[in-house]
Design a protein around this nucleic acid. Structure first.
Length: 511
RNA sequence: GAUCCCGUAGCUCAGUCGGUAGAGCACUUGACUUUUAAUCAAGGUGUCAUGGGUUCGAGCCCCAUCGGGAUCACCA
């Protein structure tokens, strides 16, 4: 234990000796928030020059002590609650029991440490330097802190000193991070508001929020490596879901007109600043709709989210150097047109050999197992994706890449699918769902062949899903959004760890 | 998984040519009844990520390991 931790444990023991419970059980009645008092305190100056305080004359508030300044028989503290910070002012003669100054001189000045939770009762006033302050008439220990916080200081010009910035420590100890860097709360508040706005809209559309299995006997619905686990009683392997798509579509078969789920997905793949092993997706499926309808819904939903998150209600979001406008409608660009526009290649007429030759020339890494569709995807990823800054629907993909998507109503070899790109990143993937059970079975069989050739991400045959389709699924539009990526976009973050409270980390060396 | 960078006090960081460990804040003691990065006086912080090696001597050079970051690959 460090010197400071030992000192705090000694303070803890001394508090108990003085009859003060460092961890009291009683509730503390909070009647005011720091930020509200600072923002709304009012006073008037009378003719004789004295001040008349107009509000917050009986407040009690609670939070952490984040700074103390001793001034002899006076004592100043900064109290931080969930709304912000406010200064506290205490006087020895008001907090003493007659001539016994133990409480002020020992408890407050010696045994109280930075980071301790306290509850105070008093009245608001303004100091002669103009700071709104609570004049404390009663202060109570609510919880002792036994470890020193990394104190971040701000000077008069707003410069930050000794910021707690080490990403490893910040992510491992989010409780510390959010305590000393309270402005980070905004990221998570915005994330929450984003999800709430989406949920409200989906409810308005009449969709039903549902829950589907996380533990699945067959990992379907996406191309990814799964986490595998084992159920002891059933003595069978189970997979953490890589997608919930096939279950949501079963519910459409079951007769629900529209379902949605905010779902944690798990993919056993690499981690970097845009990938965490578990992440959140929103998927929704609506009967009798198609991918064109979904484009309109997507525009409405994202515009609403942007306006809900911006103080001024605007639909624009700053993402790095780009100002992104979420007001619809967004351009619709076919994948082939997009490639032609950025490379000059006509992939519709090009042969597989033409594409290979292009990739070689453009230094795009390819291998021999790649077919035409995969080559097109590689070219798109290398040459087009980065240019799609403003929200853009990329539509009509080759059938080989999309085993769950309905074939295009008029374009042979393509499917009715779109992906939404914003700031050069994919944020949504949608299609007119394949509901022809015979076609679906064939698509699964093609996936099995890919798997036999060693494709670890190929989908497995899901007999029960095909059986469901055989009973009949109405034409359906379905879409999935990457919630973490959207949160990054709407909060201006470039790393997924910053929008997750507890990003995945390797185990700590040792405590 | 590959490459590069980083790891020194509770926090942020210095540490020269290889010569017995430094600053600010935090902490301890004292002064101060409207201070505010409070100030003033005094005090000591430590397994230099871990384990080896080279050397008379390693925070510094070499090797390995662990953790983090960035770039790349894979992906959402």
């Amino acid at each position: 234990m460090t010197e400071q931790e030992l000192q705090r444990r000694e303070s803890l023991a001394k508090l108990r000796e003085l009859g003060i419970d460092p961890y009291p059980a009683e509730m503390f009645d909070v009647t005011a928030m720091a930020a509200d008092i600072v923002a709304n305190y009012e006073e008037e100056v009378l003719d004789d020059g004295t001040k008349n305080r107009l509000n917050y004359q009986e407040v009690s508030l609670a939070g952490r002590v984040m700074a103390t300044r001793e001034a002899g028989k006076a004592l100043f503290m900064n109290l931080q609650d969930s709304s912000g910070r406010i200064q506290l002012y205490m006087r020895r003669d008001e907090l003493s029991d007659g001539e016994d100054h133990t409480f002020f001189d020992v408890v407050l000045k010696k045994l109280l440490d930075l980071g301790d939770y306290v509850g105070v009762r008093g009245y608001a006033f303004k100091t002669k330097t103009g700071e709104v302050t609570v004049h404390v008439l009663e202060i109570r220990m609510l919880a002792k802190s036994l470890r020193p916080l990394p104190i971040v200081k701000r000077d008069a010009e707003g410069n930050v000193h000794d910021a707690f910035t080490d990403p490893e420590q910040r992510y491992r100890m989010r409780y510390v991070d959010l305590t000393v860097n309270p402005e980070l709360r905004q990221i998570f508040i915005k994330r929450s508001r984003m999800i709430r706005t989406m949920r409200e809209y989906l409810d308005e559309l009449g969709l039903l929020e549902v829950e589907t299995p996380v533990l699945q006997p067959i990992h379907g619905g996406a191309a990814a490596r799964p986490f595998k686990t084992h159920h002891n009683t059933l003595d069978m392997p189970l997979y953490l879901r890589i997608a919930n798509e096939l279950y949501l579509k079963r519910l459409i078969v079951a007769g629900f007109d529209g379902v949605y789920e905010f779902a944690k997905m798990f993919r056993n793949e690499g981690m970097d600043r845009t990938h965490n092993p578990e992440f959140t997706a929103l998927e929704f499926y609506v009967a009798y709709k198609d991918y064109n309808w979904l484009m309109g819904v997507t525009e409405t939903m994202l515009e609403r989210v942007a306006r809900a998150l911006n103080e001024d209600g605007s639909a624009q979001v700053q993402a790095g150097e780009h100002l992104i406008d979420f007001s619809g409608p967004y351009p619709r660009l076919t994948m082939f047109d997009a490639i032609q526009k950025h490379t000059g290649l006509n992939v519709e007429t090009a042969t597989e050999e033409d594409l290979r030759a292009y990739c070689k020339k453009a230094h795009i890494e390819i291998d021999n197992t790649m077919g035409k569709a995969k080559l097109i995807d590689e070219i798109f990823g290398a040459k087009v994706e980065d240019h799609l800054i403003q929200p853009t629907f990329l539509i009509d993909y080759p059938v080989e890449m999309s085993p769950l998507t309905k074939k295009h109503r008029s374009k042979p070899g393509l499917v009715e699918r779109f992906e939404l790109f914003v700031n050069g990143k994919e944020v949504a993937n949608a299609y007119s769902e394949l509901n022809d059970p015979i076609d679906q079975r064939e698509r699964f069989e093609e996936q099995l062949q890919l798997a036999a050739r060693g494709d670890e991400e190929a989908m497995a045959m899901d007999e029960d899903f095909v059986r469901a389709l055989e009973y009949g699924m109405p034409p359906t539009g379905g879409i999935g959004f990457g919630i973490d990526r959207l949160a990054m976009l709407f909060t201006g973050q470039t790393s997924i760890q910053e929008v997750l409270f507890f990003p995945q980390m390797r185990p700590e060396a040792k405590p």
